[in-house]
């Protein structure tokens, strides 16, 4: 089983690099409109992949990952023109990880629906705290002048996708990753075999905040202004969960498949029939949860198996 897995992995890694190289060609071949779409796509893949590392592996569904995205954006926006961007963006990731670390001890003590609600509430709390902070200091929104070009941001975002994906692959194969899987299966049993349950959950939660933090920073640079309600928009959390479910949250390919699916869907319908798009997203989410809870990735595996046997 292990050898089959590593084979799949190497094939996947080749596909991954080929795909990302193609996406890196988008600016020169397809122009600026498609570059923006490619940037969006890469952002969703990066965040969803990080989300999967924690929520997919441990079964703790975070409905508030936007908080890390927002914090990363806030760090980059508030330090804009004072510290260089190559430092500010990683600092956004570190700030998000620190926030995750600090809140993880109380937050990870509750399970199931309580955890879901708590992560959502936490994101709202941070959103309104920063909103008040900005209002008090008289900066309801910030304009960012002289941001890097979209191409540069796309390359950075591709870098984040690589980082998030390699981290997930690495964790999946490690003892740490097996510990997380066992926690998802049964937390008490995991403790009785000697998995340091709380420590593993904290580490996974903290790691899963880093890339969303940096992605938030890059996206603030992309939009060239910073507005609290926009970067802490809960829709971002919902979209990430939706992409993970549709793509397959237990699979490293899932975030790619889910993000491509929803970004294409949005390209087809968002401008022409926005209401129709939201209805479709809801419909697909329901259909996937009922008929394909392991997402497109598991569906592809099934196709492959039936083709081989049939």
């Amino acid at each position: 089983m292990t050898s089959a897995f590593s084979l799949l992995k190497t094939r996947f890694v080749w596909f991954l690099f080929a795909g990302l190289l193609l996406i890196a060609q988008v600016p020169s071949i397809l122009g600026s409109y498609w570059t923006l779409i490619a940037l969006n796509l890469m952002m969703w893949v990066a965040i969803t992949q990080s989300w999967t590392l924690f929520s997919g592996m441990t079964g703790y569904i975070s409905l508030g990952h936007v908080v890390f995205y927002g914090v990363g954006a806030y760090v980059v926006a508030s330090t804009f023109n004072t510290i260089p961007l190559w430092l500010a963006v990683p600092m956004g990731g570190i700030a998000a990880a620190l926030l995750a670390l600090v809140v993880s001890v109380p937050v990870l003590r509750v399970r199931g629906p309580y955890f879901v609600i708590l992560t959502f509430g936490l994101a709202e709390l941070v959103k309104f705290s920063i909103l008040n902070l900005e209002t008090v200091s008289g900066k309801s929104s910030r304009l960012l002048f002289g941001t890097p070009s979209i191409e540069i941001l796309l390359y950075c975002m591709i870098g984040l996708v690589v980082l998030a994906t390699l981290t997930t692959l690495f964790v999946t194969c490690s003892r740490f990753g097996r510990g997380l899987t066992v926690i998802r299966e049964d937390e008490v049993a995991a403790a009785t075999v000697g998995v340091p349950v709380l420590r593993y959950k904290i580490i996974a939660y903290t790691i899963s905040a880093i890339v969303p933090g940096m992605a938030g920073g890059l996206m603030a640079l992309k939009s060239t202004y910073f507005e609290v309600l926009q970067v802490f928009n809960p829709i971002i959390s919902f979209t990430v969960v939706t992409m993970a479910i549709i793509g397959g949250s237990g699979d490293v390919r899932g975030p790619f498949l889910g993000a491509v699916f929803l970004v294409l869907l949005s390209e087809l319908f968002w401008t022409t029939a926005p209401q129709f798009y939201m209805i479709l997203v809801g419909l697909f989410l329901i259909l996937f949860v009922i008929f394909a809870p392991n997402g497109i990735a598991a569906f592809l595996d099934k196709l492959q198996i039936s083709r081989k046997s049939g």
Partner: peptide, 19 residues
């Protein structure tokens, strides 16, 4: 708990909590 397991104090929980 994990440090107790490492010392060799190991519980088999009620209800056959297998994975």
């Amino acid at each position: 708990s994990h440090e107790r397991v490492a010392r060799g104090i190991i519980m088999v929980p009620e209800g056959r909590l297998v994975f």
